[in-house]
Amino acid sequence: MKMALLYMMLIVTMAIWGFNIVAIKVLVSTFPTLTITALRVFSALLFILPLLFIRPSWKKISRRDGLFLIGISLTTIVGHQVFMSVGLNYTSAVNGGLILGTVPIVTSIGAALFLQERFNIHKVTGVILGFCGVVVIILAGSNYKFTISLGDLLFCCTVIVQAIGFILVKKISDTVDTFVITGISQFFGGGILFFVSVFAEPAGIYQLGQGNWQIWMVFIFSGVIATGAGHYLYNLSIREIGAGKSAIFLNLTPFFAILGSYIFLKESILLGHWLGFFLVVTGVLFGTGVIKSIFIAG
């Protein structure tokens, strides 16, 4: 795949994921959180399943790869979706989107620990700047009081499980097809979410009639396009250029989340949010080696 096409695909995916934070905020404000989250993941299979049958992607999966697929299901699907969806009940889409911008830094740390990538002074600088950015964002969301909301805390958990999931995807992307990784993880992750929602929200399925057609269009965007197509495209990029380089593009997600929150949710964007965004992006550029590459090229 040509690099220019791959990079453009990543930028579009980041825009979709940024606006998806706004979409999820709308959905969890209308429907029971876990029930609609499980349905979103299952709807993502509408994108993946036809492609799985068209492409000769299936082969015998080793025990090792099977264990990694379980881990991917529990992190990128169950953990990521639950923490993010529940978190949006307790924090703004702006705060959530900006905190998610630290995923590249955490992924970089994970790559150093588990993929034997070097952890140098540039990455340490990136971690410090990213941490400072998250602190500023959280303070801005709490009117600069030294408190952290439950929603912000849950989004920090989202960052950790998503980074772990990306590392696991990289571990098996050379032996398992991207369609299979995405399809199996969404199938099992969606199944787990469904059973959890049945016990946690017994009447959740009966409350789905509350939404109008506009809300269900948002649901289709969030489920099929953002969760289904988006996860496939990102998993494909991890296979093509690696977890570290793919993660660089994730710092675009907060920008689109801010833009969508302002346009569609009319949320306030404070100076602290922009300062936190600047620190996070700068931290990402340091942590993923972009700054180092610029200095070497110069």
Rank of each mutant, 00 (worst) to 15 (best):
L5P: 01
L6D: 07
M8L: 15
M8A: 14
I11W: 04
I11K: 06
M14N: 07
I16T: 11
W17A: 07
G18H: 08
I24G: 05
I24D: 02
V26E: 10
T30R: 11
T30Q: 12
L34P: 06
V41P: 00
S43L: 10
L45D: 01
F68Q: 07
S73T: 05
L74Q: 01
L74R: 03
I77C: 03
V82C: 02
V94A: 11
G96W: 05
G97C: 05
L98V: 04
P104M: 08
V106Y: 00
I109S: 01
L113W: 10
L115C: 09
Q116S: 15
R118Y: 09
H122L: 10
V124S: 13
I128A: 13
I128Y: 00
G130C: 05
V134N: 01
V134H: 00
G141Q: 04
F146D: 04
T147V: 14
I148P: 00
G151C: 08
C157S: 11
V161N: 02
V161S: 02
I164Y: 08
V169P: 01
D177A: 13
V180R: 06
G183C: 08
G191N: 07
G191A: 03
A203Q: 14
G211A: 14
W213Q: 14
G230Y: 01
Y232R: 08
L233N: 08
E240G: 09
G242W: 09
S246M: 15
A247I: 10
I258W: 00
S261Q: 04
G276D: 02
F277C: 11
T282W: 11
V284E: 08
G298S: 13
